[in-house]
Each structure stands twice: as C-alpha cells, then as structure tokens.
Amino acid sequence: MALIPPIEPMLAKATDTLPVPRALPGGIALEPKYDGFRLLVFHSSGTTQLQSRSGNDLSAAFPEITDAAAALPEEVVLDGEAVILMEGRLQFGALQQRVNRPLATTRHLAHLQPAHYLAFDLLQRGTAELLHEPYRVRRAALEDLFATHDLGAPWTLTPVTDDRELAEQWLTLWGPVGVEGVVAKGWDQAYHPGRRGWIKVRAKETSEAIIGAVTGPVTAPLTLLLGRYDTDGILRLAARSTPLTASLRSELGRLLTAGGPGHPWADVRITASWSSREPLEFTPVEPEHVVEFHGDTAVDAGRWRHAVRPLRLRTDIAPADVAPFGEGQRPVSG
C-alpha cells in the first residue's frame, strides 16, 4: 500500500460558532461530528487493520468492521468513526467495553451490540494516494466507492452539506442521539495528517446540577463537582466544571458551606478525570445550591465526559427540583 499505518489523522480546532464559507479554502463542507471512536481503516491484499486516533491497532476490538473491510474487493484507506447505537442513542461506553478484551468476547459483543463505521474520508483507493487531492475529489471518490460496491452495514456514508441551516439542526436537534457537533472542512483542502486544519463546533446543552464539592478554598472555589440525586436519593457525581470566573468564585465563596461528616461524598474517592486513577483533592460542600451550566452532548450513563462551563447560580431552583441523575439536558445552539 502507498499508505502504511500508523498515520496521524487530520484534526479539527474548536470554535463556538459555524465558520463563514471563506474561513476555509474553497468554501466549507459541513459534516456531523459523532460520539464515537475515530478509526482509520487500512485494507490491502492479505492485510486489514483498524487504527485508533492514537495509533493503536483496534482490529480485534471491532471484528465486524475488520471482517467487512477484509471483504472489500479493492485496496482502501478510510477515515471515519466507529459507533454503537443502543436505545436510540450512540453509546460511547459500549465502544469502551470493546478495548483490551479477548477476541471471543468482542465477537460476542459484536453479535449483541454491532458497531457501524461512519466513513467521512478516503485517503487511498487502489494504488492512488489521495492525501494531496482536495476534499471535493476525496469525497467524490468515497461516494463512488460506496456506490460501486453497494456498501451496506456496517458501512455508512456520513452526510455532508453546505447548507448552514441543516448544520444548525445537527447542532440543536441531534445532540440527544449522539451527534456531538459539526465539523467544517474546506472543499479545496488537502488531507494533512496530524494538523488541526478543520474546524469543529460542539453542540451544547444547558442544564442544572447541585454543587456537591469544590476544588480550592470553599471561600474562593476554583472548580465545581456537580451532582444529581438518583432514584434512590443518593447524590451522584454528574459533572466537573471548568475554572470559575472571578465573579462566580466570589459569589459562591460567600454562600458555600463546607460539608460535615455526614456529607454523601465525605468518604468518596474521586479521580482527577474520568480516565485517570489519580485521586482528586476536593472539599465537600453542603448540597444546597444549584448552578446552570453549558456542557457538550458527550454524556455517559448520566455523567458529562468533558468539563462543563458554569453559567450562573440558580437561586430560583431548589436541589430537590433538579432533574434526576441521567435526565434533563436541554440542547441549545452552539
């Protein structure tokens, strides 16, 4: 093959709003951004490999996609996203369960909860390397690949549009089912491995949660640990916040009270991040106050995967009135 794994995928830099057409070469092509695993698919005669964004071989984690790629009648290198749809939403947690498991286990999971591959770029077809071709050429070749071989499940061709109104709908309406946002690409852009040449806009949600703990001094908190009560009345960790603004630090510092021995998180170990084992130093506070925040749509089993941005104190909402753990997100325009 002309392209050999590992290859760094092309990346996107984040902005808050959809870019204007002149922001990228040749105008902008807009695609949904999914809550999935980024995968490069390499297939040549006798060799098939699925590569993660970090360069790891995930072929055994997604045998249904690996088998489908091995059956393709021509050499290809694809860029796209592996997703699992369950109960009407893309489930990132189900993807995580596939990693570092025996092949027999992943094949069983593939039967119960099959993954699909949402292809959005074609980097090689046959012996022709396409990295230096403009996106419009790569996209046309990708569409032709799907049409020529009548590709069906687990293959899916991701939609693309230059209609900003449709892209806004992806941002505001499709977050609850696992569309994280929108990626903008230049129609005349080449594919630059490892470079943040695209633009991404994350779909956001506004919601409320109870302040359960803080990092830094209670009188001038740095960040918040936010909770919601589950159906058993237990305060569960729902989100971690970004650093607070100076005004919100001051306002909360006058109101918060350190929690006593009976605080539900008094003896709870919380890690520094969802993917870390390092313990986080925090101080429980009495769960008396509610904040409104912006978060993206990456919510796993009731927990926001990425840090949320506190907007304001909600003195009009009592902790008992906050939506139960796992419910109550409201999509807003990014």
Rank of each mutant, 00 (worst) to 15 (best):
H289G: 04
L151V: 13
L24A: 09
E292G: 04
E75P: 00
E286S: 14
N100Y: 08
A141V: 13
A238V: 02
T15E: 10
P154E: 02
D162N: 13
P159W: 01
P32F: 02
F42Y: 11
V182C: 04
D230V: 10
A115F: 09
T172E: 12
P221M: 04
K204L: 14
A141M: 04
L112D: 12
G46N: 14
G93F: 03
P5F: 03
G46S: 08
D79W: 08
R138L: 13
T245W: 04
P261G: 12
A71S: 13
H289N: 07
G186A: 08
H192F: 14
A301Y: 14
L109I: 15
F146H: 06
F325I: 00
Y191N: 07
E286R: 15
T66L: 10
A12R: 15
K13G: 11
R254F: 12
V308F: 00
V183M: 06
P264G: 03
V285D: 07
A323M: 10
T15K: 04
V285I: 06
R269S: 10
T66H: 06
V308W: 00
E31W: 05
L50G: 02
L112W: 15
S333R: 15
V218D: 03
T106E: 13
L157E: 07
A213H: 03
S59P: 06
D144T: 12
V308I: 07
V137N: 12
R125S: 09
R53M: 07
A272M: 07
G55D: 11
R196M: 09
D230H: 03
G227L: 14
R240S: 10
E133G: 02
L157G: 06
D296K: 02
D267A: 11
T161A: 04
E165R: 08
V20Y: 05
F42L: 05
I65E: 01
L222E: 15
T245R: 14
Y117M: 15
A12H: 13
P73F: 00
Q169W: 15
G152S: 14
A71N: 09
G259Q: 02
I84Y: 14
R303E: 10
A147S: 11
P243G: 06
V20A: 08
L237N: 09
P287M: 00
G212L: 02
F92P: 12
L58R: 02
P221W: 04
L171A: 14
P324N: 06
T17Q: 14
R314C: 08
Q189F: 01
R195Q: 06
N56L: 15
T156D: 08
R195F: 05
D79L: 10
E286Y: 07
A68N: 05
L85F: 08
G295N: 03
P114G: 12
A115L: 09
F146R: 14
T231S: 09
P284L: 00
G295L: 05
A23K: 12
S54Q: 14
V41M: 05
L123S: 06
P6M: 13
R249T: 02
